[in-house]
Write a protein that binds this DNA or RNA. Sequence first.
DNA 1: GCCGTTTTCGGCCCGACTGTTTTCAGTCG
Length: 573
Amino acid sequence: MRLNQKVADIFSKTAQLLEITGANSFRVRAYENAARRIESMQEDLADFLCSDTLTSIEGIGKDLADKIKQIYETGTIDAYEQLKAKVPAGLIEILKLQGIGPKKVKALYETLKIDSIDKLEKAAKSGRLSELPGFGKKTQENILRSIEFYRQSSTRHLLGEAIEVAMAFKDYLREALGKRIKKIEVAGSVRRFKETVHDIDILVVARSGKEVMQACRDFPLNEAVLGIGDKKASFIANGIQIDVRVFPENEFGSALLYFTGSKEHNIKLRQLCQEKNWKLNEYGLFDADGKVIASKTEEEIYDKLSMQFIAPEIREGLDEINLALKNALPTFIDMEDIKGDLHMHTFYSDGVNSIEEMAHAGINLGYSYIAITDHSASLKVANGLDRKRLLQQIDEVRRVNEKLKPFRVFTGIEADILPDGSLDVEEDLIPYLDVVIGAVHTAFKMTKSEMTKRILKAIKTGHINILAHPKGRLLNVRDAYDVDLDEVFRAAIDYNVAMEINSSPKRLDLNAEDARRAVKAGLKIAIDTDSHSSAQLKQVLFGVHTARRGWIEAKDVINCMDLTDLEEFLKRR
DNA sequence: GCCGTTTTCGGCCCGACTGTTTTCAGTCG
């Protein structure tokens, strides 16, 4: 494991344990901040350690620097080991329940020896909880409800699923209230395009808050109401919590900023305001006299704070605020920059549409080109193409190209990188293929060195243009395989291999952080959909926003090139 | 635990809501 990850992990767990023991909350936050900062850092923590400059990192003081050193040398820190010995593991899980914080966890453990969700449930059901000081009947009921919800949905939801539910709600509300709704906008982590999300935040500007609240109750997908007031509703739809809030139009910008987050971004903005004696909350930006300076739009607020507008995708409370103040934020890639899609399947292998149908879908999205990259022969489960069928397909691509000129369909293949590192495509066919994608689809459980060796060998064949889903993860389903990405990056630069951001909401691989690292290392990115139907081409949306989260610009992405530049790039393999 | 500084310790983002208690602590976003 990279030292950064290891340190972030231990710091973050230490923070949780400290919280339960009732430590100073700012001390807890110091550990949390340090963990987040280190995890998202592009640079290697080990370099700072060697040059003795750890304390130059924001949020790392003398104490944490020593602890990083200890982790480097021994793999752990005393403080963490002692806490772990003292605090039962189950308490951390109890902390995850809605409505229960560190104080209640501590009280439950010290009075009733409750150290697991099961024991908590028993105590609540027997009525013992309501007898504790600070607890009452309602708290007891709420805890039982939280336990039930927690058991139903302990994992985070995929962004793709959350967006579907959010869109369904938006459509429903517009349908139900028509012109009585002035604005409706998704905020929160969905707007920031986090790959998985906890809930869906929706802001509404409407004539009557009560009407919106009633519509929330009546939403057909509404499974359970958690709470509904005059301006705020919480309910579960399709297993995902939706929070709806109604605001007047002139406060919409500050509300959107506030509810888009992240929490850390907001905290930094408010610290900035403090220096000017100003105040920022969901109702607006106020000067020292409490007079509104800005509130209608986010743009206006950032402007009054003398900084560039910050795209929601990068609002993480890291470096974005400092750079925006210096007017130094880059211009990130946007949907309009995408000129084609270089990874998709047809019914030749496991897709459902024809080559021509995929091409038409590409044309409809305004693309200049697509690449047809069906699976290679060894991937039997996906009906991979053998030599004969691949040659047939290449022939058909030629015919489609004639018909659809000047739109360009590239011939291609998604060739399996076999366990021994060889590429599952016959050498003499390579010249007929414009785009060769390399991908690991089998034998995921290799050791890190074996897997790295395997992928390096494939890259060094000199045949690959794009390495598809480089870490092989399936969100909420399968972890990434173990591979030394830095070594892969180095080899990929030598052989002109682009790294894929696979746009499928089930993958999003590379993720934003790794993609950012790849670009920093000097690599190009391909934002592909890996579509298995023409409708899926639209999922490029997820890839583009993941790229934005990774601070990626259009110039870093090969499918933002025009046709001739891309042809040039593809030939350099 | 970090940070900044009037260099040694005090402050660290802000508001709403809930439930318990009767003025506020705990939790959440």
